[in-house]
Amino acid sequence: MSPLARLLAARLASGVLTLLIVSLLVFLATEMLPGDVAQAVLGQSATPDAVAALRAAMHLDQPGWLRYLLWLRGLLTLDLGRSLVNGLPVASLIGSRLPNSLLLAGLTALVAVPVALLLGITAAVWRGTAYDRVVGVLTVSAVSVPEFLVATLAVLVFAVRLHWLPAMFYGLDLRSPGHMLLVFAMPVATLSFVVVAQIARMTRAALTNVLDSSYIEMAVLKGVRPLRLVLRHALPNALGPIVNAVALSVSFLLGGVIIVETIFNYPGLAKLMVDGVSTRDMPLVQACAMIFCAAYLLLVLLADLLAILANPRLRHP
């Protein structure tokens, strides 16, 4: 096996191991639930026999490690159990919501990543100028602001005062672009706000690091003009850190999705999970948590692999 292939395999294995540890953590966290789940599901009026039957059906009479393995097998076979609240299969509950969340996240990434890269790169190129300082203060402020402030302000201005946009989400119609724009404008803008700031800051930092290195000074002394300097000499070397920054910002996007879906009453996976938490619907919460974690880990892993492939030292040993 070539060193590159071995490195990629090691990263992959480490990703799988991490996911396994995460699953254990998620399982342990929900295991801390005090009281008897079966009793909680059936209510105080249930007969002891019914409770015992449910306990057996949910494997609550089994030792913890066995239940973990059973749950893990369920995850792998997409048998996610049934909701404790309404008895519907968790898989179908999630199946109806997941595409909506992916759409929201995808649209946000489409808007946020280019804007953020532009801001980050220009700030690095013109570092030390007034433009750089303004971008710096703005992005610092944006990452510090809670999403619900951005969302409430947006609603206040665009829905309550100006009546341009609907305050709440009222159904999807994928066929009408105008409708889509109206519906998604505020959720996507709110989410992008923080993500843009985060990626822009990290991009600027990565690029500034590279711009301080001596091969950049050498290029300046060769008479290379600023634009070529950044695009040809600096950017390829900052690619790894920038890709990582984009992937890490997804964790901010995730936190934001939870808030934004709740505020705008958007029928996504995060809203489903928040509802599950308030009703203590553990199978649902566990499954949602695993999907979010897996998605996040997958992105980080992809970024990692891209960074490895972008590194000539590893590609051409």
Binding site: T18, L25, V274, M282, V285, A289, C293
Partner: peptide
């Protein structure tokens, strides 16, 4: 690699 708000939600759901 557990997103923070997510982890908090899981714990709150439980305890």
């Amino acid at each position: 690699s557990l997103p923070s708000l997510l982890f908090a939600l899981v714990v709150v759901a439980s305890v």
